[in-house]
Design a protein around this nucleic acid. Structure first.
Lengths: 375, 375
DNA sequence: TTGTATGCGTTATCAT
DNA sequence: ATGATAACGCATACAA
């Protein structure tokens, strides 16, 4: 695979100031409830009641007067003031381990949608993969009176999330659970998904497996997937003799991964070697390693990777993936939270969503001939 | 290219409630400034002064008493209350046309970082590519007293952003400018980048060019790139005879794109045809079309695509890309905004950042032999 | 049914 | 240098 690294920088940064001064100008301050009251010739309390208890306790005549005043001034209550008074802000804190991770973004998307529909806004805090900042994030967010949390973090700092719960804020954990934390938890069915991936490889004839994961540490999803992989090996050690191992790949250790792949083929001998990549990031590393080694997916090494991405169909012969229902995960997480914000307080739930296996060329030992190249 | 579409669903959604009730429990309310005052034996005003004007007007004895009280109670001021009083919330509204777009996410990432460092939090509003909701977004955000806006939207609804400015909130536009809106604007140097892409193709020997873009409509970045492409054709019509055209691709019209590519090769005749894809989304569509047609990048059709992605190196022979400095764009946008939030009011700026050309196989007419396939 | 008055947690103005 | 007090915009307990 050719990968020219020649780079060229062009152009210069040009700053082109326009002539017009756009200083923040004559800013008509937003109308307050007092303005509405004055315009309608009623008291602030009445306006407030109209807004909050529209139906109850209101003479139709006055109601309509308030209504027109509100419309005339295009009055919108200040959520800040409401929050101060009510203790609820209609804000939801979303803290994410790494916005760069496509999985996180996909979840974010689902969650944001559900929240918006329910009239909540999202405050975003990105950890940049720095687990130490988890506590910081939660504190910053609580200080803004967020009504609840959606947490997709490392979960290293068990105290951090617990602190949130201690403030009485409902919490829902996504993808990664926190040690000893009793909170709603929504995630992929990791055990089932790993089994799905591994057994697919076995069905396709791959016999020596390698599970490649980011450093497992104590990230729950990684732990679970790794454990499931070994469980699979034990279960299935009977009929077709399947063996396997785990390799922890880190971003700065490309060499290690290359060696692990070489060792894999060595161990496989005459048998076909197959790889289960534990997420999209790892999949990409494996793809890079294969390119460095000049190996081809499918024939030489099988691959099933967690996380379906837009590019999965187009890398090599197409990447077989385990597609997570990311949108559902995000939406479900938000729904759990919203339910608690409505006052319901069911016991902590675990919701595990199923994955889909999407079969492509990377798990097919017999590649078709390449296309002719003519239209 | 093989693309088995067989799918299999496995597992079931299992809900596994734990026994422990985790109802929001004994929530010790956050300490207020009054609590601190009481603990230190001083007045609220003194505590407030200590917090805000630490150095001025404070007897060291009292200052330290307050300091210990604050520490003892681990007091943190309520930003909501502060916002109500000051009119500033230390919140920044980020509205994004589409969180799914990798470019938007990359920008988001840079902006979030810069804001966090400056002590600002981000309120996220995703339009889901629905331009009509732009006004809605801005209103929701202003109602939360955000101090300013970073807008990466279609810019169709000119009034929407203008409304924000009218509220006296500084606005910075990213990537897409708004009709007649005088605000800070940061984006890629589109003209230069298109020239870079097109001239690279020409250098490599491609002579019949196709510019593929999402529907241009009035999205400024698309308009600019398309215009630059045609300008390039006019300029360079002299020495090597280069001709070209534009195709607008929409998500639901795969057929149209296929036909456009066929027409491209037709027009090219003996000459080499080349494609400039105007962003990552379009690049992916072109990749998909090429797969459907069974054509190969480089030899048969050249490609330079806007937006460097993690997968660019691994699709086909590697995709030649125009890499946007997304992180810089985000950070610069945030910095512009933060500067205005500090009270500075320079005239509206335009900051155009340069791109990098990353050359890979898709713009190379002479592909090297495929690797041997043995370690 | 409606109005008055109070407080949410701060900061700022005025005294002292 | 410090303390009482009002006000930010709103919701509610209470009075009418």
């Amino acid at each position: 695979m050719l990968k020219l690294v020649s780079r060229r920088v062009h152009g210069a940064c040009l700053a082109m100031p326009t002539s017009a001064l756009l200083t923040a100008t004559a800013t008509a301050p937003r109308p307050t409830i007092a303005d509405v009251a004055r315009a309608a010739g009623v008291s602030k309390a009445t306006v407030s009641r109209f807004l909050n208890h529209r139906d109850k306790l209101l003479s139709p005549d006055i109601a309509s007067r308030v209504e027109v005043a509100v419309a005339a001034l295009s009055y919108v209550p200040s959520p800040m003031a409401q929050a101060l008074k009510r203790g609820r802000s209609r804000l939801i804190g979303l803290v994410v381990a790494d916005v760069t991770n496509p999985f996180s973004v996909a979840v974010l998307r689902g969650a944001e949608k559900a929240c918006q529909e329910a009239g909540y806004l999202l405050m975003l805090y990105n950890l940049g993969n720095n687990g130490a900042r988890e506590r910081e994030a939660i504190e910053a967010l609580t200080s803004y009176q967020v009504d609840g949390f959606i947490l997709n973090t490392l979960g290293r700092d068990a105290g951090a999330a617990a602190a949130a719960a201690r403030h009485g804020k409902p919490v829902v954990l996504v993808d990664r659970r926190h040690q000893g934390m009793q909170a709603d938890f929504v995630s992929l069915d990791n055990a089932g998904s790993v089994r799905l991936a591994a057994s697919h490889l076995v069905e396709r004839g791959y016999r020596e497996l390698l599970f490649v994961s980011e450093p497992v540490r104590d990230v729950s999803s990684r732990v679970e997937r790794e454990a499931a992989f070994h469980a699979f090996l034990l279960e299935s050690s009977s009929s077709p003799a399947v063996t396997g191992a785990t390799f922890e790949s880190s971003a700065d250790d490309a060499d290690g991964l290359d060696q692990a792949l070489r060792a894999l083929r060595q161990r496989a001998g005459q048998r076909l070697p197959g790889i289960v990549a534990s997420n999209a990031v790892v999949t990409l590393r494996v793809v890079a390693a294969m390119a460095r080694l000049g190996w081809r997916f499918g024939e030489q090494v099988g691959l099933v990777g967690f996380d379906e991405t837009e590019w999965s169909p187009y890398v090599g012969p197409g990447l077989t993936t385990i597609a997570q229902p990311t949108d559902d995960i995000g939406r479900t997480a938000a729904d759990c939270l919203l339910e608690r914000l409505r006052g319901l307080a069911p016991p902590a739930r675990q919701i595990l969503l199923p994955s889909q296996l999407i079969v492509r060329g990377s798990s097919s030992p017999h590649q078709p001939d390449p296309p002719s190249g003519q239209a």
